[in-house]
Write a protein that binds this DNA or RNA. Structure first.
Length: 219
DNA sequence: ACCGGGATGTTCT
DNA sequence: GAACATCCCGGTG
């Protein structure tokens, strides 16, 4: 995949500056205000943003919204626990949980503190650090399009685990943040029911970049 | 292409 | 003890 420009400032962007724009490029980190809206609004707006973790980055191509206490499918539906505590914190942080005995999944907390509104990151288009991603996903992912084509896969590819639970994406804790490189979200994103749920799966809160390579299984 | 089963361990009932 | 916001591999059409 070709890029119009290579944002060289990405790799070195490690410090917790509050400046919205990185000097010398149209690339900017998303600030807390971006996440402080309802998950159903934030979810499609996250499409085509970059999730960055140190030298690795992928473009977000598939997400799902989970609406806290109002949503039977949300981990927050039955209130706060040790596991889901990060979701009840301020927006702009990660909620990372462990599931099926071997996989991690990452959410972006949004809304307002205490609301437990979140967006599950389901698939990325790999953009940078592909060698590291391949190493992290070996031996399973044979094709690059399978590196990040699912919520568990993208966490494995970027090395996101329990230690990233609660990481602040605005400050760039542990080298993780979300970046806008000027690519707008799709005007008409794909919309469908949510994947892998036994309750409230048909709520149309899955959003994806139509036609993108590397969507998850049910994409 | 599609489907079925097993892996694996944390969390909550 | 059951459920789980999953993934991978090996079967079959």
């Amino acid at each position: 995949m070709t890029r119009a420009h290579r944002p060289t400032s990405l790799s070195g962007a490690r410090s917790a500056t509050s400046a919205p724009a990185l000097p010398g490029s149209g690339v900017c980190r998303l600030q807390r205000e971006f996440f402080g809206r309802n998950c159903v609004e934030v979810a499609p707006d996250l499409l085509n943003k970059l999730l960055v973790r140190d030298g690795r980055a992928g473009r977000i191509v598939e997400v799902e919204a989970y609406a806290g206490a109002l949503d039977p499918a949300s981990h927050a539906y039955r209130g706060q626990t040790a596991r889901n505590a990060a979701m009840f914190g301020p927006p702009g942080r990660l909620y990372v949980y462990f599931t099926y005995g071997m996989h991690f999944c990452a959410n972006v907390v949004c809304g307002v503190e205490g609301e437990a509104s979140a967006v599950l990151l389901r698939a990325l288009h790999p953009e940078r650090g592909l060698e590291e991603m391949r190493a992290a996903r070996a031996p399973a992912a044979r094709l690059d399009r399978d590196l990040c084509s699912g919520p568990g896969k993208l966490c494995q590819a970027l090395g996101l685990d329990r230690s990233f639970d609660g990481a602040d994406l605005v400050a760039g804790d542990l080298g993780v943040f979300v970046v806008d490189d000027g690519t707008p979200p799709p005007v008409a994103p794909g919309v469908s029911g949510r994947v892998g749920l036994s309750v409230a799966a048909d709520v149309p809160w899955r959003f994806y970049v139509a036609g993108a390579t590397g969507l998850s299984r049910s994409g």
